[in-house]
Every structure is written in C-alpha cells, then in structure tokens.
Design a protein around this nucleic acid. Structure first.
Lengths: 270, 270
DNA sequence: TTGCTCCTCACGTCACGTGAGGTGGC
DNA sequence: TTGCTCCTCACGTCACGTGAGGTGGC
C-alpha cells in the first residue's frame, strides 16, 4: 500500500530542502546523500521524495556543525539506536565546545579588566634538588592532556601509597617544544622515598606560582619568561609544573595552585 | 625610566606565548602581530617582550573565533575605546551565534522526537485573486532577511494606514532561486484598497499553514512541495509567504503563523 | 664542524561558493 | 530553435598544519 513516491530533479530537490545545488553535489560526492538515480548517459541526478526526511536531518545536523564524515555515519547507521547514539555523542561534543567558549569569554574579560595584570606574578630563583619519583611518560596533545593527567595521576598516587607515600606534590615535565607544537612528550611524576624509583633531575630554576585555571597559565608563562630572559636564560629546556592544588582537590578553578619552573643556565661565577 | 625590554627569537616568543611558530609567521604576513625587527640579510624575526600583552590578547580573541581581519583592526586600533568597541561587537556576534546554535539544537531535537511529523501539514488548493498592495522589493540574503522584514514592514503598514488601512495580512514573494541560493529578489507587500497601488498577481496555489518558528519552515516546505509534485506542479515560480501572526504580534516563536503558497500550473481541462 | 634554529615556498585541510565551458531537455 | 537546467572541472575561501629544501648562528 506504499504510495509510489515521485522523483524530482536536483533543482527541485534544492528548492524543497533549502540545500544549494552545489551542496547536494558535495553530499553526493561524499556519500552523505546520494540521489536515488543517476542517468548513465547524461549524469543527471534524480532524487526521491522519500529522501526529504534524510535531507532535513542532514540540514539540521550541519546547522549544529556536525562534520560531514560523521554525517555520513549517521545516515548510513544500520539502526535507529546507532543513529541516536552518534547524534547524542555530537551534542556532547557541542556542549563541551560551548563550555570552552564561555570559559574563553570570561578569560578574555578578565584579561581586559586587568585582574592580576602586569607583573603581579612573583618570580623566585631556586635550586631544586634531584627527586626520586614514580613516573609515567607519554606523547600527549594539549587537548588530551587534561584527560591524560586525570587518568595517570590517580594511578601514580596509588602506587606511591604502596611505596610508603608521596613525599611532595606531583608534577610533570614538558619538553620545551610542547608549548610550540601543542603536542609532545610529557612525564608525570609523584615523588617518593623508595630507592628503586626514577630520578627527576633538579637544577636552577625560575619559579612562579600560578593561582587559577590552567587556561590562564599563559599569563604566568609570559611573566615568568620575561624574568628568565632578564636572568640570562635562553628559554630552552624542559619545563616543570608542580600541581600544589589540583582539580582533584577543588572544584573551583580559582582555587587551583600550580608552580611553574623554567630552567635557568648554571650560575656563572662572579 | 622605562626598562629596556629585551628581544627574543621567534622560537622563544612561541614558547612564551603558546602560539606556534607557523601561527606567528601567519600573523606577521597578515599584519596582526609584526615582529619588532627583521634582519634584512637573513630574514630572522625578533620579537620584543613588550609584545607579549598583544600576543595574549590575540590568543584569547582567536579562542573566541574572532576572524583575523578583525583581529588586525583590534591591534591597530588608535585608542582603547575603539579597541573595546570592536571587541564588544564581536562578543555580540558570538552571543547571537550561540543563540542560533541553541535554537538549532532544539530544532534538531523536535525533529527527532517527531513532533508534527509526516504529513501532519494540511495542504489545500486555492485560487488567490490579484491583490492591490503597497510593495517594496530588494535583493536580500537569507541571513539578512529577518532584519530587512523588521525594517520594511512597519513602513509598509504605516503607509497602508495613511491609504485607508491594510485589507489583509502582509506577505512576501520569493523568487524560486531564493531557496537555492539563499539570496535573491524579495518583494514584501501589504494589501490595500487604494487604486494607485501595485498589483500582486494571484493564481492557483497549493497552500499550507505553518505554525511555529521560521527556522522550522523547511518541514512545511517539504510537505507542501511533496503535494505540489503530486498535483503535477513543477516547483518553479515565485513562492508567496503570508504572515498571519508575526514576530511583531507575539514573542513566542510557537505562536507564529505563516501561510506558504506554492504556485501550481493552470488547471487542465478534463 | 656539527646540530639546531630559522627561512621561504607550496601543498593539504574543511565545506562548500563561484565562475568557466560545455551539453541535454522541453 | 531558443532558453533553461544540468553536468564536470578547477580555483577561491579561512586559518593555519605539514613537509620540502635550503641557510644562518653558536
């Protein structure tokens, strides 16, 4: 009893869906919305009226910025549960994106309002001792580093507990290219007294205490780096962050405390 | 008494600002963040530490997706008031964008929940008479059409009042390419009894009543277009929308009522 | 002198928009 | 037969990322 559904040209389908002809070409090439028939001689496309529902869905998913490959996965989904899961996953991404934008806006406003501006960051010079510590090293990108830390630090602290307890706050070493590339080798560590542990090399460092969210760290980095230059440093070498108050300790980003340690060249004799 | 501020290489500046070297190259080429000096022999760039503040601002503005040309306008702004105004304008754009995304999400959800789905749209066939009306025609894009209507309809209704009053709801004719190109010629009209007015041509139309926000119109268009095809129409010719309940009448988008009229070919004799 | 940093092309990405140049359908 | 629609390249957009291939600085 299914009504035979008619078929229409690409121009007509364009007017029905409010998708441009070029966009329909694109979706055909990408396998997102293939016409129901293509004339083998002329290449003319015909679309079925039963494709209108899919076209509406595609239009709305693009309106919420779903990437085309995911779009294809949605329309090719074998069943409705899969489809719903893909869409829900994207809406989750979108929610995170919006939260990041909101955070970026307030970060911008705090920069403009000049809160804690211009050298309010105190920088000290310290000789940090070698530390015996439990460590974990991996190649991490900036966008995955928060998740990686949330995964690895509980494990390190648990292991430290079994080895007699942590003897100081945990931290991480970042290859200096990490801050140029937004990706690279990171070593997380938790200091312990156990003799068999790894060693985190100490040395002479310029140290600044950062109070607040990790997204604001660049302000502390800039102030600290300025001092490093003044002290004759060349801004190379692995940077150490020590997490004094972490997201595991407080849910208020303003309560976070992070020590940033930038290596200095060995002190000259004078 | 100004401290002489040192200068650093591009790699060092990259580590200080968390902007990649390639990004700094790009901002130099675009005139957003030019280095304080370029070695004429080698092309090596040097950045001043006094450029750190500008770099931080640029980084935050990009984090809220300000386009690079606007970025340049911000850093080149002659005074702080101009700068603040440009930033505020962008934050306004951003707010509108977020509102649109939120609307698109709820539109998607209403599509998925199947509210008013599958042919719940009633389509009737009517012969519309020629109308004498006050009109206003312009080339308008989809993104500017709401603002254009909000501008032009009050003027048309005011003029209609001086001409004896509107004799029916206002509306607009859209060239059929408008829905393919998202841009084109639109004629807004308000019917009046006055003899000297323009004439909006009538004819045989398939008509559907759309209840709800304009962003949901594509669903009514699809259902209506399906009927037009069934009735032998070829989906060409100018489409008429008549605004029975407009944003000027209600602040609840669900209360909006729009009649969509798609032209049909002249009735065949049988 | 050896690495390391820096340089300039130049192509790739993403989702289409925009002609260019040519052909089919009524 | 004349317009109109449709077709396929192919380049442009935007903000960089990613090598390629070569040179300067310590």
């Amino acid at each position: 009893m299914a009504e035979p559904t008619g078929t229409v040209t690409i121009g007509e389908f364009s007017r029905l869906t409010h998708l441009s002809v070029r966009t329909l070409h694109h979706y055909h090439a990408e396998g997102v919305l293939a016409p129901s028939a293509v004339d083998p001689a002329t290449g003319y496309r015909r679309y079925g009226l039963d494709q209108l529902a899919a076209a509406q869905l595609v239009r709305r998913l693009r309106a919420v910025r779903m990437p085309v490959p995911q779009l294809r996965a949605v329309v090719l989904a074998p069943d409705d549960a899969t489809r719903q899961a893909l869409i829900a996953a994207h809406l989750g991404d979108l929610r995170r994106e919006l939260a990041e934008t909101a955070a970026a806006v307030s970060s911008l406003q705090s920069l403009l309002s000049g809160a804690g501006s211009n050298g309010a960051v105190a920088v000290s010079v310290r000789a940090l001792p070698d530390l015996s510590a439990l460590t974990c090293t991996a190649d991490v990108t900036r966008e995955s580093v928060a998740a990686w830390c949330a995964d690895v630090f509980p494990q390190l602290y648990a292991a430290a507990g079994r080895a007699g307890g942590a003897t100081g706050p945990g931290g991480a070493c970042y290859d200096d290219t990490w801050f140029e590339q937004d990706a690279g080798r990171v070593t997380a560590f938790v200091p312990v007294a156990a003799p068999g542990a790894d060693v985190v090399r100490g040395g002479r460092y310029a140290v600044a205490l950062h109070a607040g969210a990790f997204t604001e760290l660049d302000r502390t980095y800039a102030a600290l780096g300025r001092e490093v230059v003044r002290l004759g440093g060349d801004l190379t070498g692995p940077i150490v962050e020590r997490y004094l108050v972490t997201p595991a300790d407080t849910s208020d980003p303003r309560g976070l405390r992070t020590e940033v340690c930038w290596p200095l060249p060995p002190q000259e004799e004078s």
